[in-house]
Computed example of a mutant assay.
Amino acid sequence: MSVATTAEFKVEHVKPKIGSRILNSKQELLSGEFAARIREELEARGVLVFPQINFSDEEQIAFTKTLGEYASENADGSPSKITLDVKENPSSAEYLKGSLYWHIDGTRNEVPILASLLSCKVPIPKGTGNTGFSNTYAAYDDLSDEDKARYENMRVLHAPWASLFYYEAEPSLAKLKIMQSIGEKVLPLVWKHASGRKSLVLGCTCHHVIDVDYSESAQIIHGLREWATSPDFTYSHEWSVGDLVIWDNTGTMHRAEAYDPDCGRMMHRTKLEGEEAWAE
């Protein structure tokens, strides 16, 4: 008589309020057997690390597809190269400068992507070029009841052009117009998800809180970012070759921590299509 065996889902928490490491084998992950568990862990923990899993591009795409609908960024379906090196990434290296500051992807879109998966192909010396993550579900949950009531119905103008001033204090008018052409969108400061959970919608695309004095607006936006990026809610991943990290874009901010654009750092990214529109 044959006996069927079920593999164990191997997970360990990185910090109390953010981050888990998934320790299953490449074969187990590619089988899709743990896809539902991975999705649950991702929403609960914000960011998942698969240490030195060493996916090829084809395997990374296949793994992404086990978790949801693959959001291809390139015509040939290949992962995107993520680097500030203009020789390797001439079309978007300039735009990626905004990735050095806390943000959520897709704030100008009707439906933001569900998640991004980033794999390390070429790291740089340890302690540099990390990627930081902030769990904005947990940051909201730990607000006082008074603050939750204060922010509950606030709305914020998100504009990619606002991020330009984080890395270039005096941009040319031409550059500003190019960034403004990308678009902008008014979003809730507190996203009431279909699941019933709530998260903060923050980051360097925040321009101002609607119908609030600009001085007070700045204090709200920057004060909440400071809160959400405090040690309790953040994790900084130090990359090794072959690491894969996935983060929940609907409840997590992220940023690349500063590094020399000419150092050769190279990541390959895949994405999952969004499944939930911004709450109105």
Rank of each mutant, 00 (worst) to 15 (best):
K26D: 07
E238G: 04
L117E: 03
L202S: 11
K65L: 06
F165T: 09
S215Q: 14
A256R: 15
S134G: 15
S91R: 07
P16A: 11
E238Y: 05
K81H: 06
G223R: 00
E12M: 07
T107N: 01
K175Y: 13
E216V: 14
V156Q: 01
T5W: 00
W191Y: 06
T234K: 00
H13A: 15
V122I: 12
S31D: 00
D232Y: 02
R45F: 07
K185G: 02
D243T: 09
K87N: 11
K175W: 09
I124Q: 01
I53K: 05
H208Y: 15
E69T: 11
Y151R: 01
Y166G: 06
A279M: 02
T107W: 03
E110V: 01
R45A: 13
I220E: 05
Y101I: 13
I104F: 06
L164P: 12
V86K: 14
A115T: 03
S144A: 06
F9V: 04
V186C: 02
V14P: 05
V11R: 10
K198E: 01
D76Y: 06
A256Q: 04
D260R: 09
L200G: 05
L224E: 03
L67K: 12
T270H: 05
T6E: 14
V111S: 00
S144F: 09
A93Y: 02
S80Y: 01
G98C: 09
A62S: 08
P51V: 09
D105M: 10
I210Q: 14
S181M: 08
E69Y: 05
F9W: 04
M266G: 02
L96D: 01
L48R: 10
A36E: 14
A139K: 06
F63I: 10
P261N: 03
P231R: 11
M266E: 15
S78I: 05
A35I: 12
V186A: 01
M179I: 07
F34H: 13
E273A: 13
E73Q: 08
T250P: 00
T5V: 07
E73V: 10
K65G: 08
V201E: 00
P90C: 11
K126N: 07
W161F: 14
L187Y: 03
L143W: 10
F50P: 13
L244D: 03
S119A: 08
I246W: 14
T205S: 14
V212L: 15
Y140S: 00
V11L: 06
R265Q: 13
L143T: 04
S195D: 08
R225S: 09
G98K: 07
E276Q: 07
T107M: 02
A7L: 00
P231L: 05
D211L: 04
L23C: 08
T128A: 07
